[in-house]
């Protein structure tokens, strides 16, 4: 029984840390994009892949990041938040791979200090956060199963 309580506490801690890290990353990059919106749009316009939908992407990406952060903040929707974060980070990683192959000289459209990383640095950062999101999703599901099994 004691071990089960310890396991639940550890799971709770990991789930919270994972969601906090993702909230920090997503909100930071969303706010940075909004604060430097004109530059963000300019860089998007230079990408051959995205230039036809600059306005749509420049609005959708920060809004999506903020929405996922809010989902991660609310325990009831945290699993959905983790899933959405994984999908978003995978989409970003595919975009980074495309840029590495076809436009390595263009700057990243990421916000803030993340934009100062090299393309390979970006990939590593994305993979790290995908791992964090997957870990968070797994621990969150463990937590929910644990709550459901708690005897009345």
């Amino acid at each position: 029984m004691y071990q089960k309580v310890l396991h639940m506490k550890r799971t709770f801690f990991i789930s919270n840390i994972a969601s906090a890290l993702l909230i920090f990353l997503l909100l930071y990059t969303a706010c940075s994009k909004i604060l430097d919106y004109e530059n963000f749009k300019d860089v998007l316009g230079k990408s051959s892949l995205l230039k036809t939908h600059v306005v749509l992407i420049s609005v959708t990406v920060p809004v999506t990041e903020i929405t996922i952060s809010l989902l991660l903040m609310v325990p009831k929707f945290r699993s959905i938040g983790f899933l959405a974060a994984i999908m978003l980070l995978c989409a970003f990683s595919l975009y980074i791979l495309y840029m590495i192959m076809y436009n390595p000289s263009l700057p990243c459209t990421c916000g803030g200090v993340v934009a100062k990383l090299s393309w390979s640095g970006h990939i590593i950062l994305n993979i790290a956060f995908i791992v964090i999101a997957v870990t968070g999703l797994y621990t969150n599901r463990q937590l929910r199963k644990g709550h459901q099994r708690t005897p009345v």
Binding site: N16, S19, C31, P75
Partner: peptide, 19 residues
């Protein structure tokens, strides 16, 4: 939710600082 709120406040503050 406290860790999420704390992370959000940090993120907004940090982005304003590095803008």
């Amino acid at each position: 939710i406290i860790s999420g709120v704390f992370a959000a406040v940090l993120a907004i503050g940090f982005s304003a600082f590095t803008a």
